[in-house]
Amino acid sequence: MAPARKKHGSSKPYIIPGGFTELSLQFSSDSAARHKLYVKEHRVRAEKSSRRPLDRTLFVLNIPPYCSKAVVRELFSQFGGVQSVELREHPGSFQDSEPKLSKFFKPAEKQGFKVGYIVFQNSSSVTAAKSHSHNSPLVVSTEQRPVKTGVQKWIQQYKESFIQPNKLQQIVDSFMAGYDKRKEEEAERQRKEGEQQQEDEEGWVKVTRGHKGTKARPHSEAANRRTLQKEMKKKKRKELMNFYTWQHRNTQKLHIAELRKKFEEDKQRIALLRAQRKFRPY
């Protein structure tokens, strides 16, 4: 840490192998220790989502837990206008998950170190960030925009956790309305698919390879298993047990083998206990 800082010039960016630029970050101007952020332009072979334009997105590693989206936006706005900030636990491709939920229904997020994808308005901001001097740290909490941590933050959180029952009811209602709508659409689609399977006026049935609505195969894993078991049972019922002499002999042989195994196990158990001195009473 310390020697590394000395090696490099005071106002040059510090680039490590792998192409990341090291930026330092401190909580407030008087804190002694600094975290190191590692930034690089976002570059992947195939970016499907339009949310992370390749030329304007900065990929940031190691963002401390007390930096929220707003704080990060504020921190990086010194390099140029920020369009959006995305914070994640692990690097990975963008997923648009599930219908939009209100914050009260989202599971609690882990408050750990994050990686960030910062989309600037101009691509020049990315280069600006990358060439930022290693020696002038970013400061999280300043007098103009203090960041709350500790007791203050928890009280704030507690305050924000309240929601009026009628507002909550509204959220629930709107979600359920959406859900019902989706349900209906689904039913409608299924009905249509079903209709297609019916004979038309001329007596033709349209056969599709479609995976939905196929009745020939049981539809769930459990049902699959049940059918298999039924088959097995049928087979078993037909089988004769201990009927022929060789079968009888075989069962006996198996029984003795079983006993032998048990005996060996017991012997080993005792040997093990002896080795552990489990028989010394005092």
Partner: peptide, 11 residues
């Protein structure tokens, strides 16, 4: 990239 949380790099 997946293991840099709260770490610093030494070259």
């Amino acid at each position: 990239t997946s293991q840099v949380s709260a770490r610093s790099v030494e070259v």
